[in-house]
């Protein structure tokens, strides 16, 4: 039997996973213009909220996932208001904001390790249903990841293109100072953007947790894959982010066809270096 259908399905699953991470990442980057490493740790936090609620209170996956997404969203807003917003008001550069996000990221990762140990944990049932599709196998959580990717992309598309909020977000992304002068409540809009992007990070973390499991250190992988997909696609552009995610998903999975899976990160960073050298503004130049 050919391995090709499975490689294609795996690439699509990886692309959808990266899309989920990158959509939230790009939404926040577009308005705030800095690489936020905390995005990765919020995915881990949401995963651990689901794990904790399931283990301690026996809560089923749907309500605990809703609380996990809400928790990530609230934590994202709290960090925005307490750390990044004051720094931006003091004129901090994107580099300073990135370094501060690494600090918060490390702190969250350490707290998760202290509370839940560094052990790998599985969310949901490991023996989930499997479906065959043109000779390739796909699990129920993986189907949900693909559907969630499509749903979040469609929702953001409508939000950014059809609502007044979306126009305000685009105006802030373009020129925050002018947006402020014409009366857009830039602080409130940016806070809401952080709430939405953190919630999306939380959803990604939970779905990754159900599919492959959670660890306190997973945030780094989530952040790096999100950042690479975003940069390759065209940072700050949610459509570019989707293209970057699928390019990365296909390149990683086809790249390890004949070699060890341990080369996946090397492939991702190889693509990043190629893009930074030859097309630094990404696929969709903004």
């Amino acid at each position: 039997m050919s391995i090709l259908p499975q490689l294609i399905i795996n690439s699509i699953i990886a692309g959808a996973t990266y899309t989920l991470i990158t959509l939230g990442f790009n939404l926040a980057y577009g308005t705030t213009k800095f690489l936020n490493a905390v995005h990765g740790s919020l995915a881990a936090v949401a995963g651990y909220i689901v794990f904790f609620l399931g283990r301690s209170f026996g809560l089923s996956i749907v309500p605990s996932a809703a609380l996990g997404i809400f928790g990530a969203s609230v934590l994202g807003v709290v960090i925005w208001r307490l750390v990044f917003r004051p720094l931006r008001h003091r004129g901090a550069s994107p580099a300073v904001l990135f370094l501060s996000s690494l600090g918060v990221f490390t702190m969250i990762q350490a707290v998760l390790a202290i509370l839940f140990t560094s052990q790998f944990q599985q969310l949901g049932n490991v023996g989930s249903p499997r479906y065959e599709f043109f000779g390739a196998v796909i699990t129920k959580p993986q189907v949900i990841i693909i559907l969630a990717g499509i749903f979040i992309f469609a929702t953001l598309f409508i939000l950014l293109n059809k609502t007044m909020f979306g126009k305000a977000v685009k105006a802030i992304a373009d020129d925050e100072e002018v947006a402020r002068i014409i009366g857009i409540q830039t602080d409130s809009v940016t806070t809401l953007v952080f709430a939405i992007s953190s919630g999306i990070a939380g959803l990604a973390g939970i779905l990754i947790g159900i599919d492959i499991g959670i660890q306190p250190t997973m945030g780094l992988w989530v952040f790096l894959e999100g950042a690479i997909s975003a940069i390759v696609g065209g940072i700050g552009n949610i459509y570019g982010g989707v293209l970057g995610s699928f390019l990365l998903g296909f390149a990683e999975n086809f790249g390890i066809w004949k070699i060890s899976g341990a080369w996946k990160p090397a492939i991702a960073f190889g693509i990043l270096i190629v893009f930074l050298t030859l097309r630094p503004k990404g696929i969709v130049r903004n």
């Binding site: 007044m164 909020f165 305000a168 105006a171 373009d174 014409i182 409540q185 809401l192």
Partner: peptide, 28 residues
Amino acid sequence: RVFEQMSVLDNLLVVVTERNVWGALFER
């Protein structure tokens, strides 16, 4: 300083945007 990435129409529509952020989230 115009909003370069937006259409001419959107450059102006954004000025008449709902000031309440929650309202703006759901309104066209």
